[in-house]
Amino acid sequence: MSTVNLQISERRAQRAGGSIGRRSAGLFFVLPAVSFTVVFFILPLIFTVYMSLHDWPLLGDHKFIGLDNYSALLSDRQFWNSLWFTTRYTLLITPVIFILAFVLALLVSLPLPGVGIYRTVYFLPVVIGLGSSSLLWVWLLHDRVGVINAILTGLGVMDRPIIWLADSSYAMTAIIMSVVWKTVGFTMILLMTGMQAIPAELYEAAKVDGANYWARLRYIMMPLLRRTFALALILSVIGSYLGFDQFFIMTAGGPQNSTISVVYWIYKNSFTNFKLGYGASLSIVLLVILVILSVIQLRLLRDETSY
């Protein structure tokens, strides 16, 4: 790992004798960033663990209750519903993003004039906030003033407008549609960068051996893209698991609490019900789940690099 390398090279440099003045200067340069990270990240992180062991209302005294929050969490039906909902959302949206991003990446990697413009256009929604894009789609999807219903009924696809976000059978589709629009360009660029890193000679050699386009795609590009896939997959899965804006804004968790994601449930407990200790225990559980998910994905995609 790079940490080890860093420490080794550091020791070597110290043995070689960096001057004392330069040593304290280095610390001076990194100190502001380190202080910020400690005060606004490391301490809050430790504090989250501490709070999760307490009954901690917003006002009034908190008291130590050991692991009670965690055992309460096990029998919290809405927590399990949220966890299942978030998992389902992640399982549904990830393949959509990946298939679309892969096709887009193939298209915008072609050496044709004007391809850069398409790349920019597909990427454009990425720079808009998820909050703004969710609000934009609330309007687009509205049953009366929304243009999507107007187009679909105008084309005769449907008889009457759908109330997308208030209907549990359509809400998931609608949210996925809006988030895919906003985020697919990000995965596209990651995959495109990976594709560009593959040496052209490999394709040439395969071509000489008579491999057609699909064979080159399947047997050269796909295996060599494994690392890029791993990175893109982890970022995409983590992003989906941490989803909040889209659910808070588009459905407010409805209908019948069916679209409350895990982060949304943490938010509700902490800042609507003011059960801060319980919210903290939920946060720790989410953190552990995410770390496990990342490790599993890394393993899955690393073990098969025998090409």
């Binding site: 860093l6 330069r22 340069f29 380190v34 990270t37 992180l45 946060s283």
Partner: peptide
Amino acid sequence: FQFRGKGLLFVMILMTLMIPFQSILI
């Protein structure tokens, strides 16, 4: 620069990338 704890401090700052800020908002 070379200084004591450099590697550790660097990793500490980068590690926060792996921890979602959503979990420390409270």
